[in-house]
Amino acid sequence: MFGLANPTKFMRFSGILLPYLIITTLGLFGWGLYMVFTAPEDYLQGPLSRILYVHAPSAYLAQAAYVFMALANFTGYIWRHPLADMAAKNAAPIGATFALLTIITGMLWGKPAWGTWWVWDARLTSVFILFIMYLGYIAIWQVIEDQVKAARVATIVAAVGLINIPIIKFSVEWWNTLHQPASLTTSGSAIHPSMLTALLIMFAAFTFLFTSLLFISIRTEINRRRARAMEMRILQQNIAQTNLSTRAAINNQEPD
């Protein structure tokens, strides 16, 4: 694993792996979606049960990406591992997107199932808070220009967030049961085996999608830093040359 700390090695390794990752992702999505639309419908919810196959994997990915992000940040913090910092930085927008998709699909499911777009249901509320935490985390990387400093500060944000996620979940559930009874539970209906297979394939597809997107983002980040370093070098050379020519010009003028 630690060999990957070297960006050049990572570029070579990820360049070989990336095509396979993308093909696997596309294949899993094709297979999963085929399974989803041939799986039997839930007796209670009818066609609505098909929302589960994208809603649940999005929710899982939104949470898993946060944990991944925090772990990557820790690795970067403890072992001064620049690639881990880049992984954390680039996991955040992907996680935020899936948190948003979870909220949107949840709302679209809530309208026909519960009769309203938004209920302050414990799970919806938790995901909403998770989305806000992603926004705060992304804001840190944007407002702190020095990337090394930003990585260290972002680790603290991610760590404090990670400690708080269970507390927030617990308190939101407490608050929810205090204010309103559970809206609807589908636990009564057992999952049909073919539904379960379809769901598991979709989980795998989302995981591979996350990995592919993350790899591409990290490669972009490495390219950006390399380009920046080259630009800085060119700038320094230009300044040095200008200094030389001005000095020459001054020297030439001196005899007057």
Binding site: I140, I144, I168, F170
Partner: peptide, 23 residues
């Protein structure tokens, strides 16, 4: 402390701390 070196950081502090205030 997280945003100490950023000027006019109040809005980002709010965004950052709001989730932690909910419990």
């Amino acid at each position: 402390s997280i945003l100490v070196s950023i000027r006019r950081a109040n809005q980002i502090i709010s965004l950052l701390i709001l989730p932690l205030y909910i419990p």
